[in-house]
Design a binder for these strands. Structure first.
Length: 279
DNA sequence: ACCCGCACCTGTAAGC
DNA sequence: TGCTTACAGGTGCGGG
């Protein structure tokens, strides 16, 4: 579930709890969720945690060592992942990595479906060169130019483009639907049918929707899977206009919302507020 | 070259 | 009660 707002809420809720803490021990219960070096040092053992960074839907834990080079570890939460601080020694099912900290707490990566994972890097430079640079710009920093670089030349549906992390990083199924409703753009509109005014509206709306979702602590759906680094649920689901509301009346015009599939994902939109266009 | 569709996993809820 | 099926926040790959 975690898209940019949830991942950013996790980042902020973890910062004060872990920055400055030393990692005493790393407990790697499922080595297969790590891509690359699975050794303790690579996973920040004996490092002091100095920062948590985010790009799109991915977090990066930074650590410094007394001697030797700093390290960094990327954590992707996939569909069902969580990263949270807990009392050491308390283990739920599906906790794949535990970082035991010097104040007696533990940082736990839990991911039942294992669509997420962990990627260690020697430094942020390697991380950027080998991983983060393969993604588009973070959705909060994306510009009209970033979208205009690919939209005019594609027939792909705008929603499919927004979900493509190599175009813009951080938008997932919930916020793609929410921001397209707010921008009054039909999710199936081909990229090349959008005007510059449309693209400008999509970019500013994307920033506004994501920012408000972060302020609300992200979206926690009915199954309660998403919680932040302190175990707190988000509240943005109460502001969802379309996601999960197929068949219900549009909050703007009362016409029933329609449900379809785009790029294999359930997609909800208002057929009156978001008119189709062709080209 | 581009894009769709599926596979990857587990858990939950609904239907029979 | 219990089995079967469908579906779920994401991503990466093969093949059309």
């Amino acid at each position: 579930m975690p898209e940019l707002p949830e991942v950013e809420a996790v980042r902020r809720s973890l910062l004060h709890a872990v920055v400055g803490r030393r990692v005493l021990k790393v407990d790697l219960r499922r080595p297969d969720i790590v891509t690359g070096d699975t050794s303790g040092p690579a996973l920040l053992q004996s490092c002091v945690l100095t920062d948590i960074q985010r790009h799109g839907k991915e977090l990066s834990l930074l650590g410094e060592r007394d001697q030797g080079l700093p390290r960094c570890v990327c954590v992707h939460l996939g569909m069902s992942g969580s990263l949270r601080v807990a009392a050491a020694g308390h283990h739920d099912r599906h906790v794949h990595v535990t970082w035991l900290l010097d104040d007696g707490s533990a940082l736990e990566f839990r991911d039942p479906r294992r669509f997420g994972g962990v990627w260690p890097f020697a430094c942020t430079h390697d991380r950027d060169a080998l991983r983060w640079s393969l993604r588009g710009r973070d959705a909060l920093a994306a510009t009209i130019g970033d979208l205009c670089a690919c939209l005019p030349s594609t027939r792909r549906a705008i929603k499919a483009v927004l979900l493509d992390q190599s175009v813009v990083a951080g938008v997932g199924n919930i916020y793609a639907d929410e921001l397209l409703f707010a921008a009054r753009v039909h999710p199936l509109t081909p990229g090349r049918a959008l005007t510059v005014a449309d693209v400008r509206r999509i970019v500013t709306t994307m920033r506004r929707v994501l920012t408000r979702a972060i302020e609300a602590g992200g979206s926690t759906l009915g199954d309660g899977t998403y919680v932040d680094g302190q175990g707190r649920p988000g509240d943005y689901q109460r502001q969802h206009a379309v996601y999960g509301r197929g068949g219900l009346p549009c909050r703007r015009c009362r016409k029933p919302l329609e449900s379809t599939r785009v790029s294999g994902r359930t997609t909800v939109f208002c057929p009156r507020c978001q008119r189709v266009r062709f080209l």
